[in-house]
Simulated scan of single mutants.
Amino acid sequence: MIFELVKKESKEHIFSRKGLGFLFVVSLLLSVMSFGFISVKELSLLDQPTVVMTAFRLLLGINILISMVFASTMVAGEKEKGTLESLLLTPLTKRKIIIGKLTAILVFWFVVTLISLPYFFVLSFGTNMFPTILFFLYIVGTALVIAFSSIALIFSTILASTKNAMILGILIFLITLIPMFLSTTMKKSGFAKRINDYSPVSASMKSMKDIFINKLGSSDILVGLIPVIVFLLLTVLLALMISKKVDFLRGE
């Protein structure tokens, strides 16, 4: 039964005109970026690890936002369209409904990764970085996409408005991005330091730099990814706990 729900969500959000449009945009951005790294003189001088990290950041950032847009509409949208009743009348428990919707987002992310693989293969050609790229795509990337999608799904569950759920979810994502726009000095104190220490996005970017640039070992990389793992577990657990709130508007 969960498979049928995943199939329904995939058809509505991924293989619909909107979803295919998002996939086209992702492909276009990757193509433009790859062409820029080859043809623009200043960009062509960058070393391959920097190029790969830049591509990964772009791909991950865009797809976290797209996944959060999908997640924001998955429960609140059902309420607004009046289709939640038929979903609740199925044999699926509310927790399984949330799991099914998160699985559909995972399907979207895997489709995106398949599209991105040829680009990363070309960008890393001649090096031994491709296996590491696969690790960051399918382990770290998947963890972040599911975690942030869980946040958007939580807001979609407890709020009656897809717009409000989307705004609040994306706001949290943007807060975790703050350290990326601050100088090294600013990250060493105050609120910026706290976000930098605990942000899963900062941890993933730092781990990528450690493995590609600083050449640290796997044990150091895994320790650096602890914030990502903790963030994933907390958000998914909270989403499953909030699943009991999947109900009609105003509890009707």
Score class of each variant (00 low, 15 high):
Arg194Ile: 03
Ala152Gln: 05
Ile170Pro: 00
Met205Pro: 03
Ile221Cys: 08
Leu159Lys: 00
Gly19Thr: 13
Leu5Ile: 15
Tyr119Met: 02
Val32Leu: 14
Gly141Asp: 03
Thr90Lys: 03
Leu249Arg: 12
Lys79Pro: 07
Phe70Arg: 02
Leu46Gly: 04
Val75Phe: 06
Ile66His: 02
Leu28Phe: 11
Ala203Met: 15
Arg95Met: 13
Gly77Cys: 10
Val25Phe: 02
Ala147Arg: 02
Pro118Ile: 00
Leu59Arg: 08
Ile242Val: 15
Phe35Tyr: 10
Asp220Met: 15
Ile242Ala: 03
Asp197His: 06
Leu171Pro: 00
Val26Glu: 02
Asp47Trp: 00
Gly217Cys: 04
Leu45Ala: 14
Ser124Val: 15
Ile229Ala: 12
Glu80Asp: 09
Ile151His: 03
Gly169Gln: 14
Gly82Asp: 11
Leu29Cys: 13
Ser161Thr: 00
Lys244Cys: 11
Glu12Ala: 13
Ile175Asp: 04
Phe121Cys: 12
Ile64Asn: 00
Val111Cys: 07
Ile226Leu: 14
Ser199Lys: 01
Ile14Glu: 10
Val40Tyr: 06
Ser44Thr: 07
Ser219Lys: 15
Met208His: 07
Leu59Glu: 04
Asp197Arg: 11
Ser207Asp: 11
Leu238Glu: 04
Leu177Gly: 05
Lys187Ile: 07
Val75Pro: 08
Phe120Leu: 06
Ala203Glu: 07
Thr132Lys: 11
Val228Gln: 08
Leu222Glu: 12
Asn214Arg: 13
Leu114Gly: 07
Leu23Lys: 02
Leu84Ser: 05
Gly141Glu: 09
Ala160Trp: 00
Val201Met: 11
Ser31Gln: 01
Leu114Glu: 07
Ile139Ala: 14
Ala160Leu: 04
Ser199Asn: 02
Met180Asn: 10
Ile178Asn: 01
Glu80Phe: 01
Ile2Thr: 15
Ser34Met: 05
Leu249Tyr: 15
Glu252His: 14
Val223Asn: 14
Ile97Lys: 00
Ser202Arg: 12
Leu134Tyr: 04
Phe130Pro: 13
Thr50Gly: 03
Pro179Ala: 09
Gly19Cys: 11
Phe15Pro: 11
Ser218Tyr: 15
Ile14Ala: 11
Thr113Gln: 09
Val140Gly: 08
Ile167Cys: 09
Phe173Gly: 04
Ser27Phe: 11
Leu225Ser: 04
Lys244Glu: 14
Ala165Met: 08
Ser10Gly: 08
Ile167Val: 15
Thr73Cys: 06
Phe155Glu: 02
Phe148Ala: 01
Ile211Asp: 05
Thr73Tyr: 06
Trp109Cys: 01
Leu234Ser: 13
Phe181Thr: 03
Thr73Gln: 08
Lys206Glu: 15
Val69Tyr: 05
Leu222Phe: 13
Leu114Trp: 09
Ile139Asp: 02
Ser156Gln: 10
Lys96Asp: 12
Tyr138Pro: 00
Ala55Gly: 05
Gly126Tyr: 11
Trp109Asn: 01
Gly126Lys: 03
Gly21His: 06
Thr235Asp: 07
Pro227Ile: 03
Lys101Cys: 10
Ser183Tyr: 12
Lys94Trp: 06
Ser243Lys: 04
Lys163Ala: 00
Thr93Val: 06
Leu153Ile: 09
Leu87Ser: 03
Met129Leu: 13
Ala165Leu: 05
Asp247Pro: 11
Ser16Asp: 10
Val112Leu: 12
Asn196Thr: 03
